[in-house]
Design a protein around this nucleic acid. Sequence first.
DNA 1: ATGGTTTTTACTGCGTC
DNA 2: GACGCGGTAAAAACCAT
Length: 331
Amino acid sequence: MSDTRTREQDETEERTRRSESVSEAETEEQSEVQSCPECSGNLVTDGARGETVCADCGLVVDEDSIDRGPEWRAFDSAERDQKSRVGAPTTNLMHDKGLSTNIGWRNKDAYGNSLSARQREQMQRLRTWNERFRTRDSKERNLKQALGEIDRMASALGLPENVRETASVIYRRALAEDLLPGRSIEGVATAALYASARQAGTPRSLDEIERVSRVEKMELTRTYRYVVRELKLEIEPADPEQYVPRFASDLDLSDEAERQARQLLKNAKEAAIHSGKSPVGLAAASVYAAALLTNEKVTQSEVSDVANVSEVTIRNRYKELLEADGAGLFA
DNA sequence: ATGGTTTTTACTGCGTC
DNA sequence: GACGCGGTAAAAACCAT
């Protein structure tokens, strides 16, 4: 209730401020001085207008900059506390989102003075209990382990932070919906990672995932399907183009070949020959065909190696690709 | 469980270096 | 003769029913 009211207030205040003057927060940013490319005079950033201008000749060096300051203003610290809507960033990578209390290990007080023996003893007890409460029930401990697992696999596969975040979220949801009983933590964690990698557009094949995971492929596919179905995750079939860069770089192909491969895949989509076929095979075939078209030598077996697809599949797909391409050219 | 589709395995023939 | 390539048939894997 009071939240919404404060918000509206903030916004009205902001509008009035914009038209008037520059707030205190921006005065600090103004001090960032460089020299003008025209007259080498001092540059001034005007946060309210979102521009960087030369103080001497008035040349606008940069416009539409982003004002990262708050959109409200406060006149004293109490007001600031009241209006601020943010705190420390949270992260799904920690089982408690990094929001729980953390007691440091140093036996010093806030001023850096050593603690007395009695105080040290107290602190030690506090740490012990804090840790116990933090990982209180089985779900929390479960989550802690799973997130560790996700993190380990993600780094082994070179997946970026955001994929891990998404995987954590998926896992949390699975946990919240009681999907875990009867399934292993590793299995669900792996499935979550697999799903998030695909959602993020950086798919890893089941084989790759399986290599870094502790679960069998069969269990993985089963839990994956289960999780996707139960959580109603919308994961569209992997786009072959997403594999192209990886294959191309594994094979040391030129950018030109990579571009060519994408083009072939676009044509293939036009001709609608890609439905039902494995995206990986299609990607592999396009890479192979592109290498041929740009006169770069790669053998079918090399491509099949890096893509983990059989040569036969590459042959079949790439035949279709060229047909579609030819049809596209003459149409 | 079953049937249809796709992928893989295994094998063969052809041309080239 | 080894290698890359294209093709085929049968087996295996996968998916929806």
